[in-house]
Design a binder for these strands. Structure first.
Lengths: 135, 135
DNA sequence: TTCCTAGTTTATAATAATTCTAAAGTGAAA
DNA sequence: TTTCACTTTAGAATTATTATAAACTAGGAA
């Protein structure tokens, strides 16, 4: 992914391209595969990869702006921390409780044949399939 | 549900039938329909229903023991609080983000036609279908 | 280029859910 | 009844996240 595309991620999220934000955006979006992360894990990874320092609040703010702009998804995981996913396409997840690891499932690998009707006055926004794993 | 069944819920959870625990168990299990609750909401409801007082820690301990014994399910909901469900049968949920309300979906109302294989060495423990609602 | 200002970063405080702790209370076996 | 392991309780500790306020900076205007 080119730098200009990185800058577009920032611009479309309403964020000025500051040093910290560019580093975060490069780390998240300039890669082959999508990744899952928490704010804490992202902070640690950024510390290793870059020489820039990041206040946790900066990471929270930036990640939330990306989420609001649709560049990141937030994922439900049992536990305390919030997980994010750079894969924003429609897809599902395996969750390995032993390793606290999330694994993507391609949307086309889950086919739902029957669904209930939404309650009165409501519509279905989206469907999340979450498959818990065991050994 | 008879008192003896309530006491069985406690015994099978490894809990002595103390005043507080019997009140909690009666409140949760002596009813027609199953309910969803958080520790906070349960505390408020108990305050209204009974003249007993409950330390939050007591409610946490008791609820977690019921969960460990399989008498309660913990449910994924985006947000900070942990939701529990007295419906421990295999089923799914609607979630109304506007009202923070969970609605049960009978397992037979969701039919999944195709599923991915579990990663190597892992097996599928259970599948949770979570349907987000909008207006 | 220099100034100016709105937007940013940062360290730290505040908040909120949950868990821990240690002291006082209690059930039930002997 | 006495005893003791198990409970309850209030409050402290912990943890993730959000708020705050002061110092900093990007980038347009002069």
């Amino acid at each position: 992914m080119k730098l200009i595309e990185i800058l577009n991620k920032l611009r479309s999220s309403g964020l000025r391209p500051t040093k910290q934000r560019v580093e975060i955006a490069k780390f998240l979006f300039d890669r082959e595969k999508t990744i899952h992360f928490t704010v804490e894990s992202l902070n640690k990874l950024l510390l290793k990869k870059t020489s820039t320092k990041f206040a946790l609040a900066t990471i929270y703010n930036t990640v939330h702006a990306f989420k609001a702009a649709g560049h990141l998804n937030e994922i439900e995981v049992r536990g305390k921390k919030t997980y994010f996913d750079t894969n924003v396409s429609n897809h599902h997840h395996f969750y390995d409780n032993d390793t606290s690891e999330l694994i993507d499932i391609n949307a086309k690998d889950v086919v739902i044949q029957k669904l209930p009707k939404a309650p009165n006055g409501k519509k279905i926004k989206n469907i999340e399939v979450f498959i818990n794993l065991k050994n």
